[in-house]
Amino acid sequence: MTSGIKPMLTCREFADFMADYLADELSPAIKDSFDEHLRLCPNCRRYLASYKETVALGRHAFEDYEAMLPPEVPDDLVKAILAVRPRP
């Protein structure tokens, strides 16, 4: 027998499936329970925000990395690479 009351999603469940929630890979019913949890739980709202900002920062972390480095390869390494080139 069911009571008709949906069990509340826990913060742990929310955290475990947050990536699927953000990727919109949850069924509509499950997504509704995530939305509801988020509406009621400010701590999970902050956790979700920190996760989203982290992903955004991570995606851009290397954008200037190669630009800051000298584009030259050490001469010894160039010679070593050219030495292994198969000859026709």
Binding site: C11, R12, A15, N43, Y47, A49, S50, E53, A56
Partner: peptide, 21 residues
């Protein structure tokens, strides 16, 4: 993240200071 037995976060998270951009 760490969780209590009832499934709540152990940590109380703070607001993120500024958006990534």
């Amino acid at each position: 993240p760490g969780f209590l037995d009832d499934g709540h976060h152990v940590e109380q998270f703070a607001d993120w200071t500024a958006p990534a951009d």
